[in-house]
Amino acid sequence: MEPLNVEHAGRTLRGVLHLPHPHPSPAPAVVLCHGLGGNRIGWGNDFVLLSRLLAAQGIACYRFDFAAFGESDGDPLDFSVSDQVSQLKAVLAQLERNRAVAPDRISVLGFSMGALVAVLAAGDRRLRSLALWAPAGGPLNLPFWESFRDEIREHGRADYNGIEFGDAFIDDLRGIDQFAAARRHEGPVLLAGGTEDGLMRDELIDPYREAWGDRLEQHWIEGMGHGFGSLANRDRMFEAALAFLSRTV
């Protein structure tokens, strides 16, 4: 594990690169994208553990903090999904220049908002494969996020479960079309989540099924919500991701 920061729009995005030891040179790689309010450690240390498991399988793994989260620079009021997409593309470009990484063998795994960001990035540039854990709904959830407008007008910011954001996030959602981006991605996809997760309901998932057809693998965990909820569920999600990425990266 070694520090690897990325400069983007005057901000430092802080991250770490896990390399297999010994590792093929160059090695295939996976980038991990955390969800809203998360960071490169992951809830329950899950991104750290997953990175180590990938490295043990000969796959390099890069995990980083999006701007304004974790230890990366940035103002939470500037946060938007489109800006995170731009950050991810900067990360991917830097990894492609890294001599330890095979530039044509890079995949992305994202959770929730990070999964939405991964889909949008894949619509703009080639990725080997996508692993999506419960992708956020984007503009389909706009009515919920619009409910924070009054709070922003009164206080200059919104507070969602202790996560700060402003108008930039809500305004940006209007222009997002994750399903158009999904149709431009030509590689295999894993879609994994829980049967009790509202982000895995049919109206949010069916357009992905239509876009990816037989390139889509689905993995459902009975009774699981948006978070793992238990170590057993976490391990099942890890197993699905590792099996998929070892075949497709």
Rank of each mutant, 00 (worst) to 15 (best):
R174W: 08
G194W: 01
R157Y: 15
E239A: 13
P3K: 12
V189F: 01
D78R: 15
I170R: 07
N161Q: 11
G225E: 06
S129D: 03
L50K: 09
I176K: 12
P20H: 09
E203Y: 14
V101H: 06
A56I: 03
D172G: 02
G194H: 04
R234E: 13
F179R: 04
A158L: 05
S72K: 00
R99T: 15
D177A: 06
A121C: 07
V30C: 07
V249P: 09
G138C: 04
I205F: 05
S86A: 13
G187P: 02
L19D: 09
G156W: 03
W145L: 01
G227R: 10
S129M: 06
A211W: 03
R201F: 06
P188T: 13
D150Q: 11
A55I: 01
I59R: 05
Y208K: 02
M224F: 05
L36F: 14
V108G: 00
N5Q: 15
D197C: 05
G175P: 03
L4H: 01
L142G: 04
G44Q: 13
L132A: 03
D214C: 08
M237G: 07
A136T: 00
G227W: 07
R128C: 10
G15Q: 04
I152T: 08
S129G: 08
Q178D: 05
W145D: 00
R201M: 13
E210R: 15
A240C: 08
F228V: 06
A180Q: 15
L17G: 10
A27H: 04
D65R: 03
G123C: 11
C33A: 14
L95M: 04
A232I: 13
S107E: 06
D73A: 09
L92D: 05
L120C: 07
G15I: 07
L88S: 06
W220F: 07
F228I: 09
L120S: 05
L17Y: 04
W212D: 04
Y208A: 00
E239T: 13
L191Q: 09
L231H: 12
A131T: 10
A232T: 14
I205L: 07
I163E: 09
D46N: 15
L50T: 02
R234H: 11
P20R: 08
D171G: 08
F179G: 02
R128M: 05
L216W: 02
E203T: 14
D197H: 10
M1R: 11
W220N: 00
V30T: 09
P207F: 00
